[in-house]
Simulated assay, not measured.
Amino acid sequence: MAEKGYGSLIGDGLWSNNQALVAMLGLCPLLAVTTTATNGLGMGLATTTVLVLSNATISLIRNLVRPEVRLPVFVLVIASFVTTVELTMQAAFYELYLVLGLFIPLIVTNCAIIGRAEAYASKARLDKAIVDGLAMGIGFSLVLMVLGGMRELLGQGTLFHQAELLLGEGARGFGLDLGPDFQGALLAILPPGAFIGLGFLIALKNIIDKRAARLKRAAAARRDLPEQDAAQPAPG
């Protein structure tokens, strides 16, 4: 397998192969916990931590694991790190852990993590596996946070409400509040609102990608015109 460069790995994780907007993986936590930006960011950081640690471990043991048992071994590695993250959140971010609830242990079943382990980490060297896990995790976290922020702002009129659960007491006044008179859209904080919001994000990405492709083709055509003119014989 030809290994990608660091720039390509980062671009894939953040945009081109974003696990939420392109691969459509990890939709269970994506749609369930994104009622606020704080919840989305907390789940994203937990997922990113597991992605980086599991990618690194699987890259280190890739030559020691027989192909017949690779998937059970990968799941065991991921489950070990999920348990570590869960216990850490119980100790350090207990109130946020109560909010996220069952979805922390369910990171084990996140197809984005097992997918990166199988598709990339099991074939790549350590540094590339770590960069891949970090980029994919950050890309997934950004979608969680943006979707959570959209739903929270439209539904409750707040942004990063209860940020202190994740960032500490210093962030208690960090959030935005539109006031008690704000009439929010109930649909935004209900499950259908998550599907609609994700659909808008996917549509926006597709629009940006198509526009970028048109601009790239137009730039290439402008570069080709002088070469074509130079190749034509001079009149007379």
Rank of each mutant, 00 (worst) to 15 (best):
G139L: 12
S59K: 12
T49K: 00
I196N: 03
L60D: 09
P192Q: 04
A32R: 01
F200M: 12
L201H: 14
V108A: 09
A20K: 04
D12H: 02
P192V: 08
F74N: 15
P105T: 02
P72L: 03
G115I: 05
P67A: 10
K205R: 15
H161L: 14
G236T: 12
V146W: 08
T84S: 14
V82D: 05
G26T: 07
R217F: 00
L186E: 13
T48Y: 00
G42A: 14
L204E: 01
G115W: 01
N206D: 09
A213E: 15
M24V: 10
L60M: 15
A188S: 10
M150R: 08
I10Q: 01
L30D: 06
A46I: 00
N63E: 12
L154E: 07
A185E: 10
G26P: 02
F74R: 13
L60W: 13
P226T: 13
L27Q: 08
G101E: 02
F93T: 02
G26S: 09
I138P: 00
N110R: 09
L126E: 11
E164V: 01
A121M: 06
L21F: 06
G149P: 08
V50L: 08
I202C: 04
L126D: 11
Q156P: 08
V85Y: 00
I10M: 00
L41Y: 04
P235N: 06
L186A: 15
E227N: 13
A220R: 15
E169Y: 13
V33G: 14
S54I: 00
V75W: 07
F200C: 14
Q162K: 13
E86D: 10
G5N: 04
I130E: 10
L215Y: 13
A117N: 13
L64P: 00
Q183E: 13
A219H: 10
G184Q: 03
G148I: 05
L14C: 01
L198V: 07
G184M: 04
K205D: 03
M136Q: 05
T84H: 05
A230Y: 14
A121V: 10
G179A: 08
A234Q: 10
P233N: 06
T49F: 00
G173A: 09
A121Y: 03
T36G: 06
L159I: 03
V69H: 09
S59P: 11
L98T: 11
D12M: 01
R222A: 13
T88S: 06
A218K: 08
A213Q: 15
T88Q: 00
P180H: 01
A185V: 15
R214F: 14
A213R: 13
A2T: 15
A220S: 12
D209Q: 10
P192N: 04
G173E: 11
R222H: 09
G101H: 06
F74D: 14
A2W: 11
L96A: 02
G11K: 07
A112V: 07
G193F: 02
K205H: 05
G44F: 01
C28L: 14
D224Q: 11
S16T: 12
V33R: 11
L9D: 00
T49A: 03
I207Y: 08
G149D: 05
I61A: 05
H161D: 15
P105N: 05
L154K: 04
L159V: 06
Q90R: 14
I130N: 09
G236V: 08
V73P: 01
A124P: 14
A129R: 06
L166M: 09
I114R: 03
V77N: 02
A46G: 07
L201W: 13
L71T: 11
P29M: 05
D209R: 12
G40C: 07
Q90S: 11
G149M: 03
G184V: 02
